[in-house]
């Protein structure tokens, strides 16, 4: 009994092989999406419970990064300031601002403010802020022009190939230790020359072992 016409064989074969190509194309599209801001959320200003502006605090007022991110020099974690740090100033200024009500409520009721995390790494990456700071990697090298961000966004993908860009050749990015916290630092024209000197002076090894970051 002939259920299908003979041409059905051709159609089914073509569609089976075609499916492989369609899948490959789909894979390619997914890969492109993974690299694009749709997925990485690079340059996307994130909404926060309080519209905290680094532009105002770090840029216009010139408050040092470490005033709030106190553990960045000695810990793997830079530190999100406790509400007490906000209230150090805001117990006295902008005390009636409705925008700051979540901060006051947090301090009053001893409840944490649930900030939206902007820069996150997978749990299998053991990144350490302190070693990068003490070897001359500036805040803005990874976090971008934070002092110009009204709402904070991620400046880089934080993908492994991005990390390796510097781990393979730190001379391209290292700056003098005195300039690490300068939000307005401009890479000098002789960066490669300066970088090479600093890499030697700070005893920086280009660390590309898997176990440098993965444990």
């Amino acid at each position: 009994m002939q259920i299908f016409h003979h041409s059905t064989n051709t159609i089914s074969r073509v569609s089976i092989y075609g499916a492989a190509f369609i899948l490959a194309l789909l894979g390619g599209v997914l890969y492109a999406i993974e690299l694009s801001p749709i997925y990485t959320r690079v340059n996307e200003a994130r909404e926060q419970p309080v519209p905290f502006s680094h532009k105002h605090h770090a840029g216009e007022l010139g408050i040092d990064c470490r005033y709030c991110h106190t553990t960045v020099e000695k810990s793997s974690f830079a530190g999100i300031p406790p509400t007490q740090t906000c209230m150090t100033c805001h117990s006295q200024i902008w005390t009636k601002a409705p925008m700051l009500e979540p901060v006051r409520a947090s301090y009053r009721d001893d409840k944490s403010i649930a900030w939206t995390r902007v820069n996150a790494l997978p749990d299998f990456v053991y990144f350490d802020h302190s070693i990068h700071i003490s070897k001359g990697v500036g805040c803005t090298t990874c976090h971008g022009q934070v002092a110009e961000m009204p709402l904070t966004w991620k400046a880089n993908t934080l993908y492994m190939d991005w990390c390796l860009e510097c781990h393979r050749d730190p001379a391209k990015y290292v700056r003098p230790k005195s300039e690490v916290f300068d939000p307005g630092y401009v890479t000098p024209a002789n960066q490669l020359e300066l970088g090479a000197r600093l890499v030697k002076e700070y005893k920086i090894h280009s660390l590309t072992n898997c176990s440098t970051c993965h444990r």
Partner: peptide, 9 residues
Amino acid sequence: YGAGVAVDS
């Protein structure tokens, strides 16, 4: 697809 081809052939 696989079943269809099988029945036919």
